[in-house]
Simulated assay, not measured.
Amino acid sequence: MRRRPQQDQGLFPCEAEVARRLSQDPTEWAAKAIILERDGLPRIDPMMGARYWPAVLAYWNRRYGLSAAAAMSPDGLENLNAL
């Protein structure tokens, strides 16, 4: 996936941008993300190819006791041809 300009990252930023927003080195973030996903960090959405940023923020807010609401993850790819 090609990296988009920082101002164009939107709701599904690339992993390098997620690392930057979290003040992490991109290489170290890749290893940390694998471990944090086991704890509830939203996984990369297969359809969008990136993590949903508001869900990432919700994860950190819950982790630090700032929110009791749990973010939901998609249950799989949608079959848009089924309609």
Rank of each mutant, 00 (worst) to 15 (best):
R38W: 10
D75L: 14
P54S: 00
P13V: 07
R38K: 08
L77H: 02
S73R: 00
G10F: 07
R43C: 10
W53R: 03
L36F: 11
Q24D: 06
P42D: 09
P13S: 03
L83Y: 07
P42Y: 08
P26D: 15
S73M: 07
R43H: 04
V18N: 03
K32D: 14
P26G: 15
A55H: 00
F12L: 00
I35T: 12
L80E: 10
R21E: 09
A30H: 08
A33P: 13
Q7T: 06
L22M: 03
Y64Q: 00
M47H: 03
E37L: 02
N81T: 00
S73V: 14
R4F: 15
A33Q: 02
D8T: 10
L66A: 08
L11C: 10
G76F: 07
P46C: 14
Y52G: 05
R20N: 14
Q24M: 13
T27C: 04
G49C: 10
R20V: 12
P54F: 02
A16V: 04
L11F: 05
Q7P: 03
R38N: 13
W53Y: 14
D45H: 05
L66H: 03
S23H: 03
P42S: 06
L57G: 09
A69D: 11
I44R: 06
D45C: 12
P46A: 07
R20H: 06
E37W: 12
E78Y: 03
A33V: 06
L36P: 04
P5S: 10
L41M: 02
P74L: 11
D45I: 09
D75R: 01
A16R: 01
A19W: 02
E28G: 05
L80S: 10
R20I: 06
R62F: 11
P74K: 00
L83N: 10
R3A: 14
R21T: 04
L11Y: 11
Y52P: 02
E78D: 01
R51E: 08
W29E: 11
R21W: 12
G65P: 06
M48I: 10
Y59M: 04
R2P: 15
L66D: 11
D39S: 07
A82H: 07
L11W: 05
D25T: 14
F12I: 02
A31W: 11
Q24Y: 07
W53L: 10
W53G: 08
L22C: 01
S73G: 03
S23K: 05
A58Y: 04
R3V: 15
A70D: 07
R43F: 11
